[in-house]
């Protein structure tokens, strides 16, 4: 019995020493140690984590000067919570440091991440149900306030629905990982070379063919790039 107790103590006691948790690592700016924990947590969530986790991952990689991965996670966080001012600021600094500057995003691209998806979904539901209810009330007893209220809710429901669809149907995005990647005019090394893109540049994936992916980069330039030079935005 004594031996069993000793064995148990030997196995468990080392774990009693307090491992620094993730928040402590981030506060102590131990970025390289925090990255594996964050990525493990993301895998547990089936690569569908919250905005805060992706923001912290992006911040870690930005401090580690890995622009490609930092941009991937910042974009993932942006999709989930575009109202995060820290995210906006850090992403602006990252874009300023890109080797190949990108054109400003169009209004259609801005629409895809103008509000968190949860807010869009909630507003879509609320305004839709409210508009319907007010319409029924107006039918039962015509009152002007119910008419205008119903119309207002209907318009807001339409807007929310459009933005929701924009977020839902946003194109698949990816970020260039290597320092310099070559865009080709076809899916193969035998094709002529187009422009170069650099680590951290955001592209939209149009389709994939074998080891190559057709992308839209640097303002509507369509070309092909090796699939392993991209990392998809979760």
């Amino acid at each position: 019995m004594r031996w069993l107790l000793l064995l148990w103590l030997l196995l468990v006691v080392p774990g009693w020493s307090e491992k620094p948790n993730l928040d402590q690592l981030l506060q102590q700016k131990r970025w390289s140690e925090a990255v594996p924990l964050l990525e493990a947590q993301d895998r547990l969530n089936n690569n569908d984590s919250g905005a805060r986790l992706y923001y912290n991952l992006g911040l870690c990689y930005q401090h580690l000067n890995n622009l490609g991965r930092a941009r991937v996670y910042y974009q993932a966080a942006l999709r989930r919570n575009p109202w995060n001012s820290s995210l906006q600021s850090n992403l602006a600094l990252l874009k300023a440091g890109l080797t190949e500057p990108e054109p400003d995003e169009s209004w259609t691209q801005t629409a895809t991440h103008c509000a968190p998806p949860a807010v869009l979904a909630a507003s879509m539901l609320i305004f839709s149900w409210s508009a319907c209810g007010l319409a029924w009330m107006y039918r039962m007893r015509p009152r002007e306030r119910w008419l205008w209220g119903g119309l207002g809710c209907f318009i807001l429901a339409v807007i929310s629905t459009c933005l929701w669809f924009a977020a839902r149907l946003a194109p698949l995005q990816a970020v260039v990982q290597p320092e310099t990647a070559f865009l080709m005019n076809g899916p193969g090394g035998e094709f002529t070379q187009s422009l170069n893109v650099h680590a951290g540049n955001l592209v939209e994936v149009v389709r994939e063919q074998g080891d190559w992916a057709e992308v839209e980069a640097l303002g509507k330039l369509r070309a092909w790039i090796r699939r392993d030079e991209l990392m998809l935005v979760p």
Partner: peptide, 16 residues
Amino acid sequence: LRGPQPGVDASQGWAL
């Protein structure tokens, strides 16, 4: 750069 944000928030995959 702005600092980290501790804690974990829920996934919003359901919203889409």
